[in-house]
Design a protein around this nucleic acid. Structure first.
Length: 621
DNA sequence: GTGCAGTGTCATACA
DNA sequence: TCTGTATGACACTGC
């Protein structure tokens, strides 16, 4: 009893202390619950519960990932993991992430939020294991479907989505289950959806862009309604918030990035990228386009994606900060500092004004062509110049190039949606080299920011050409490092990375060019300094000459004056001389001469030679 | 359209 | 032999 009393007493004291502390802290915004043990305990329990759920989720994700890997097979030629084609389905569904990174809450018809376990249960019930491969593609598509919904597309009354975070949360979450009501009528709705002209249009556009580097045929939409893929209509597509689908690629990429970090060798990623169209087969093209070409769509719709209200807000970050980028995709290979999209991009894109090496690119038969051609790294001068003339294409330091399938003229191609595939691309790719108009302006980007920074961007583009080349070839060094590192450090750095021939050549060229550029700058600087120095010397010499000339004239004047004085003195002295008879000497017969000892003699002019020889005869004056 | 200055690059020589 | 430097020459670009 005493103990209990003491405990109660101490508990009461604690509460009083808590009250006091709370009163002190209330000004700081602390709530009383902070000091409530029961409250804290409840919070702790909730936290533990959430952690347990999270663990379950992660466990499930791992299992799904294993299942995914089991569905993949290694292409021995490319080293790439590719999904095993379904025996009967001609259309291969791209491997999609089983891992869902969207933290989305799902609401049922009654508005009640479904728990994750419920969602998982629904998922298991709706999609048997054998469908995992197909269904997984869009499992998470609901996550962002709402924000990505096209305004013109009718909203289908399916499961509503809570405006969850658009960007994947740090922790992966299991794929949101399809709505419970998914059924045949949903498939029908999906069919109707796919038949929408806007959707087909966007699908065509997306395919056009996506297939630039591949030869995938434009999917025939009706054919896409393959009953084998019972899943894709599923997702909430029906609810016409298909954008969910848009997320699919993102999740697809993220999943690979996170869960299969080293599964795909860096050099074999382009096939991965090429799977986008297949994914697209399963996704509403419009939203897919939106997510992949947010900028393009924005341009197309004059800056308005068409999202309105919360959706638009929710997606506001997407264009600037898409939940996925090719960087994500291509960061599969650890240590790759540069993305693969750039590689693919530049493989058919411009670069390298010199074919990278001066000695290999000066003519058509230069080894540079073969050197890079084998690796799709062949760049021509004109290509590089085109890139130079396309500041918009390289602005923001590749940030936009990291977008999947980004092409310098993406914006341009985004406009002619109805243009036949392939045609515009080729025409635009063969833009004349002298084409100097800013592509941004061509595409209606006459906004002030574009024109304002045009010069700056051009200079930046020009300055960072080697940097672009380096990124294009995925050289994991900065240009500064390549150029400025001492030889030993440079060699050490090079030895730490396995670079192919093209990369080595480019690195050497970058280093050579960079050093030569600095040398040329120094040379010109010295030349200018020499010129300035010589000009300065010339000026000083001119001054000296003038001074000397003045001094000379002064000396001449003085000399003349002295001569005159001397002559006067001579005559004066000579006129004072008298012979023995008192007669003056004739200046024509005599002259005065001074000997070395300072004595002056009167020398007869006629006897001059004699006098010189008979010096003793002379008598000093 | 032309000329000029600035700059990058290449080729070459040299240290 | 390799690497860096210096420099003339050329091409390109912007003014």
């Amino acid at each position: 009893m005493m103990m209990e009393m003491e405990v109660m007493h101490s508990g009461q004291q604690d509460m009083e202390l808590i009250d006091i502390l709370w009163k002190q802290d209330i000004d700081l915004g602390a709530r009383r619950e902070v000091y409530d043990y029961n409250h804290r305990q409840k919070e702790h329990e909730l936290r533990r519960q959430r952690e347990l759920e999270e663990e379950k989720r992660q466990h499930l994700v791992l299992e799904q990932e294993k299942a995914l890997l089991a569905e993949l097979e290694l292409d021995e030629e490319t080293g790439e993991y590719i999904p095993r084609p379904p025996p009967s389905a001609p259309l291969q569904v791209a491997v999609a992430p089983l891992e869902v990174t969207q933290n989305v809450s799902f609401t049922g018809e009654d508005g009640d939020t479904m728990s994750f376990d419920e969602c998982l249960q629904l998922l298991a019930e709706t999609f048997p294991v054998e469908n995992t491969e197909n269904t997984s593609v869009c499992l998470d598509t609901t996550a962002v479907s709402a924000p990505m919904m096209h305004p013109e597309q009718p909203a289908l009354p399916l499961a509503t989505l809570s405006p969850g975070p658009l960007l994947p949360p740090p922790t992966p979450s299991p794929p949101p289950p399809p709505p419970q009501r998914m059924s045949l009528d949903l498939e029908q709705a999906w069919m109707e959806l796919l038949s929408l002209p806007e959707l087909q249009q966007c699908l065509s556009m997306q395919m056009e862009d996506t297939l630039e580097t591949t030869t995938y045929p434009l999917p025939n939409i009706p054919e896409e309604q393959n009953p084998n893929y019972t899943f894709y209509p599923m997702s909430n597509l029906t609810d016409r918030e298909p954008n969910s689908l848009n997320v699919c690629p993102a999740e697809f990429m993220n999943t690979f990035e996170v869960s299969v970090p080293s599964m795909v060798p860096p050099d074999n990623l382009s096939p991965m990228k090429a799977k986008a169209p297949q994914l697209n087969d399963k996704f509403p093209a419009g939203s897919f386009c939106d997510i992949f070409y947010p900028n393009a769509i924005l341009d197309e719709s004059s800056g308005q994606h068409g999202l309105e209200g919360n959706e638009s807000n929710a997606m506001s970050d997407i264009p600037n900060k898409p939940p996925f980028t090719p960087v994500d995709i291509y960061s599969l290979s650890a240590g790759d500092a540069f993305d693969r999209s750039k590689e693919n991009l530049t493989a058919e894109l411009p670069d390298s004004d010199s074919g990278i090496s001066s000695n290999i690119s000066q003519n058509a038969s230069s080894p540079g062509k073969s050197l890079y051609g084998d690796e799709s790294f062949s760049y021509s001068d004109s290509d590089m110049e085109e890139m130079d003339h396309n500041p918009g294409s390289v602005e923001s330091d590749y940030s936009e190039m990291f977008l999947l399938n980004f092409q310098p003229d993406d914006l341009q191609r985004a406009i002619p949606l109805s243009a036949p595939m392939g045609q515009p691309q080729q025409q635009q790719e063969k833009k004349p080299k002298q084409h100097k108009t800013d592509p941004a302006e061509e595409n209606g980007h006459n906004n002030a920011p574009f024109t304002k920074d045009k010069q700056k961007k051009r200079s930046e583009v020009r300055l960072s050409r080697d940097g672009q080349r380096a990124k294009a070839l995925k050289i994991p060094f900065t240009v500064d490092m390549i150029i400025n590192l001492p030889v030993d450090d440079f060699n050490e750095m090079m030895s730490k990375h396995q670079l192919n021939e093209a990369q080595l050549a480019l690195v050497r060229d970058i280093r050579r060019r960079g050093k030569n550029k600095v040398a040329a700058q120094n040379c010109r600087k010295r030349k200018m300094e020499n010129i300035v120095g010589l000009e300065s010397n010339l000026d000083s010499l001119k001054d000296e000459k003038a001074r000397l000339l003045e001094e000379k004239s002064q000396n001449i004047t003085n000399l003349k004056e002295m001569k005159q004085q001397l002559n006067s003195l001579y005559l004066e002295v000579f006129g004072m001389l008298r012979d023995e008879k008192g007669n003056s000497y004739s200046p024509s017969d005599y002259s005065l001469q001074q000997s070395t000892d300072g004595n002056v003699f009167l020398v007869p002019r006629i006897k001059k030679t004699f006098i010189k020889s008979e010096d003793s005869v002379l008598s000093p004056l």
